[in-house]
Amino acid sequence: MAEEYRSRIISIIIGVLYPFILLFGFYIILNGHLTPGGGFQGGAILSAVLMSRYLVSPNQDIRLDSLQIVEKMAYALIVAVPLLFLLMGVGGRLDKTVYLVLMNALIGIKVSCGLSIVFFRFVFYESR
């Protein structure tokens, strides 16, 4: 993309909105057990942050392979955490809340990594 095709309005607006979108994504993930939302929706919002960053500066400076490793680790933890809580035998209300928040956070990390990888693979590697 040449320099003159880049819109100044979009870069300023996204620069202002960037922290708010980030905050909104984390809010949706961490309050998934209290308010509508959850890991999937919050993860999608977090990956939308990366995509809007691509609109401002289309540089290939995101390490996709480390994102991939993070995603696989998150999936392993998503499988492991319910097993762990099942084997330990949770009973109290606090344990259940910890379980829900932990699972929401893991799913959020996994979904945001996955959607970002899909998007950046498509943008940078898919040639015509």
Binding site: P36, G37, Q41, A44, S47, A48, F122
Partner: peptide
């Protein structure tokens, strides 16, 4: 159905449009 509404707004309006 606010959960579905959030998912639809993010994925349908943002990700799919940019893609």
């Amino acid at each position: 159905a606010p959960d579905v509404a959030i998912a639809e707004a993010v994925i349908g309006s943002t990700l799919a449009t940019i893609l």
